[in-house]
Design a protein around this nucleic acid. Structure first.
Lengths: 116, 116
DNA sequence: TTGACATGCCTAAAAGCTTTAGGTATAAAT
DNA sequence: ATTTATACCTAAAGCTTTTAGGCATGTCAA
C-alpha cells in the first residue's frame, strides 16, 4: 500500500453523534437501534454511526442525567426507550450553539480573503 | 468535581485544522507560526489550534506530498515556509467536499421533521 | 543589563471520540 | 433449517487534538 493511500481519518464527525442523539430525542422517545437508523435517515444518508458509537454514548448521557430510559417489551424483545431530560435540553442548546459557532468559523475561514 | 462537570470534548473540530491549513496555503505561502494565528484571525477568533496540533500536521502533509517547504532566514530566526502542491490542491478539494457533505448532513438532521 | 515577552521551531504523553470487530439473544422470512 | 433483521452490549484499535513542556533568538522596558 502506497504511502499516499494511508487512511485519512479527519472526518469532521467529532461530537456529531452526541448532538444528533440529543436532537432526535428532543422530538420523541426513541430506542438505541432506532436512533442508529434515524440519524442515517434524517441526514439524508450522509451520516452513519456504528452501534458501537451510539450505545456507549447513550449510557454516558444517561449517567450525566441528560436522558432517561424506560424499558418496554415488544414482541418478546426488550427495547430501551430514551427521552431528553431538562438537563438534556440545556445540553442540546449548548451543543447547537457550539456547532453553529464552529460551522461559522470554518465557513468564514474558507471564504477569508487575506488583506494584501 | 461533580460528575456533571466532566470534560465534554466533543468539539466538532476533528479534521478542521487539516482543512484550514490546506486552504490558507492554497492562497499564499505561510510558515507554521503564522498559520496558527492566521487560522484564528481568518475564523473571526472562533477557531484556535495549538502549535502542538499544527506543526505535526504540517510534517505529515509534507511527507504525503501535499505541501512543500522552503527555509528562509529572517532577522536571525529561521522560518519554514510552506506552499500547496498539485496533490495538495486535490486533497483540499476532497476535504472541502467532505466538509460540505457533513455540514449538510448535520443541518438536514437538525431540521428534520419526523413523518408522524 | 537584565527580565519579560513575543517570535519560531519542535516533541511526547494524555485525553477524547469513532471505528472495527466482535458477542448474545429472539423473531421473521426463505 | 438457515439466514436475515432486530436489539442490546463491550473492548481494543485508530485518529486527532490538547496539554505541557523544551530550545533559541530578538525586542522592549525597567
Amino acid at each position: 500500500m502506497a504511502k499516499s493511500d494511508k487512511k485519512r481519518g479527519a472526518s469532521f464527525l467529532n461530537g456529531v453523534p452526541n448532538l444528533l442523539i440529543l436532537k432526535l430525542l428532543s422530538r420523541r422517545e426513541m430506542y438505541g437501534y432506532e436512533l442508529v437508523r434515524s440519524i442515517q435517515q434524517a441526514s439524508g444518508e450522509a451520516l452513519v454511526f456504528a452501534e458501537g458509537c451510539i450505545y456507549p454514548l447513550l449510557h454516558v448521557l444517561e449517567e450525566e442525567g441528560c436522558i432517561s430510559s424506560r424499558e418496554q417489551a415488544i414482541n418478546g424483545r426488550t427495547r430501551l426507550y430514551y427521552l431528553l431530560t431538562g438537563k438534556g435540553e440545556q445540553r442540546l442548546a449548548e451543543m447547537e450553539r457550539e456547532w453553529d459557532r464552529v460551522r461559522q468559523g470554518v465557513v468564514q475561514a474558507l471564504n477569508w480573503e487575506p488583506v494584501s
